[in-house]
């Protein structure tokens, strides 16, 4: 009974992926056939073609990688001042605002300034806009690191003779490592998942996986839309698979958002 429920649960979550796989390999799949009538792999073999899905995937990867690296390192370094700020509640509000606010509204608000700065329509501009969200997330996440326990570890290291620099490198970074990895993954995904900011700041000139998916869907090409969807699922699924292999962090801070 319990086992059956578990299998049903996995099936329910994996069924959507199966359908995407089916569509990405379908050649002819007319109504009302429950399965494709003919199969082919052109959506996948055409990945490397210039201007195709492969290029969009690489672009998404580059933007998300840059966003994750910059947001995580900046967030790590600046989060302590956020925890110790007197205006704690106001700062917490500000940091959550980009998430509560629709990314569309954020994009609309920033579009003109980015245009004037020559950043609209470029990958750099898109990455910067997404970076605001990712950075806010990183600060929220790393605030959990600065609890009494972490401070006690740093104090302990200091009285044993560690300079502030040594305490960071030999104590803080190793303790924070699980949290840093989590932050890298999550900020990567914030950028990887984003559509609204790519649309508004990219002005249709930056084609990422999400915008490609929507274009294929509009054009009625479900095969390529499904293939884009599957590529979009790849990094988060890999991250979850890696997480499944590991023990959860035993000494990292709590997760807020």
């Amino acid at each position: 009974m319990r086992r059956a429920a578990g299998i049903a649960l996995w099936a329910a979550f994996l069924a959507p992926v199966a359908l995407l796989l089916g569509w990405s390999f379908a050649w002819r799949w007319p109504w009302p056939a429950p399965l494709p009538e003919r199969w082919q792999a052109s959506a996948w073999t055409g990945l490397a073609a210039t201007g195709g899905l492969g290029a969009a995937a690489l672009r998404s990867l580059g933007i998300a990688g840059a966003v994750a690296l910059v947001a995580t390192s900046l967030g790590f370094v600046t989060s302590r001042s956020a925890v110790e700020a007197r205006s704690g509640v106001a700062l917490r509000w500000l940091l959550h605002l980009p998430f509560a606010l629709s990314p569309v509204v954020l994009g609309v608000g920033l579009e003109y300034s980015f245009l004037r700065a020559g950043l609209a329509g470029h990958m750099v501009g898109v990455a910067l806009a997404q970076g605001i969200l990712a950075y806010a997330y990183a600060v929220i996440l790393f605030c959990g690191l600065w609890n009494a326990r972490t401070r006690a570890y740093l104090d302990g290291a200091a009285t044993l003779g560690a300079t502030p620099r040594q305490a960071w490198i030999r104590v803080l970074l190793p303790i924070a490592r699980p949290l840093v990895v989590l932050c890298l993954v999550q900020t990567f995904l914030i950028s990887w998942f984003d559509y609204a900011l790519v649309l508004l700041i990219g002005e249709g000139r930056v084609a990422t996986l999400t915008t490609s998916l929507y274009q294929f869907l509009l054009a009625g090409d479900l095969r390529l839309a499904a293939a884009s969807g599957l590529i979009l699922l790849l990094p988060p699924v890999i991250a979850l698979a890696v997480r499944a292999q590991r023990r959860p962090p035993t000494f990292a801070g709590e997760w807020d958002l």
């Binding site: 326990r149 006690a152 570890y153 104090d155 302990g156 290291a157 009285t159 044993l160 104590v171 190793p174 303790i175 490592r177 035993t250 000494f251």
Partner: peptide
């Protein structure tokens, strides 16, 4: 050197 009430050994 300050020795805490709780023995804060470095977990890593």
């Amino acid at each position: 050197v300050y020795l805490n009430q709780e023995p804060l050994l470095f977990p890593h």
